[in-house]
Amino acid sequence: MAEKSSVFDMIGPVMIGPSSSHTAGVVRIARVAFKLLGGKPDVADITFYNSFASTYEGHGSDRAIIAGLLDFKTDDKRIKDSLTLARQEGVQYHFKSVGNASTLHPNTIRLNLQKGDKKVEVLGESRGGGIINIAEVDGFKADFSANLHTLIITAEDKKGSIAFIADVLAHDDCNIATMSVSRKGKNDVACQVIEMDSGLKPVTLEYLRSLSWIKAVIYIPDIDR
């Protein structure tokens, strides 16, 4: 059974036009990328695929993606002027269109972001109605919607790490909704993407970050807050 819709799916969301998949969804993908990078990028290379490739300008998806990279929310009236605002803030951006990428969702965007020494690559899909799927982060399969509270942990690929982390989350009274695990290779680096029904306490995040075998912990609470 599909999840039941809300009153606010029928009258809502409050959003910037013209289209939930071309503006709201795109802003949300970029806000996830902003969180993953830990701030606004110095340089952003953005590739629009397939259906997005020809229509992104007419639908204002270019302004939507830059707005998200400036951490604007989906109902922020400044989205319309985001290109100007980004230039004022020194964000360099480039857009590219790629068609016929048949293995990708029709509305896919790839973001290659750089801030100082830090680089992040995100592959996001806008699936309609403002709903998104973050398909990949830095080449790792991710598949999260950012509707719930998301935890992305990069750690050594070793026995018991999944059970250990799940146990830590359970101690913070946190229910896991979805989880995906992928790795570069055996005993190499692994990435765990965990979606949770409720948020985590700062102390839980601090504890996870303090562990020697955990390389990085990124926490993204409900993206629309």
């Binding site: 799916d9 029928m10 969301p13 409050v14 036009g17 013209p18 939930s20 009236k77 403002g130």
Partner: peptide
């Protein structure tokens, strides 16, 4: 028109129909 010009609207039920309600 506000919707078409990247202004703030309520999707009701969708953005394309946001002028009717």
């Amino acid at each position: 028109e506000v919707n078409s010009c990247m202004g703030r609207v309520v999707a009701a039920p969708t953005a394309g129909a946001s002028g009717i309600m």
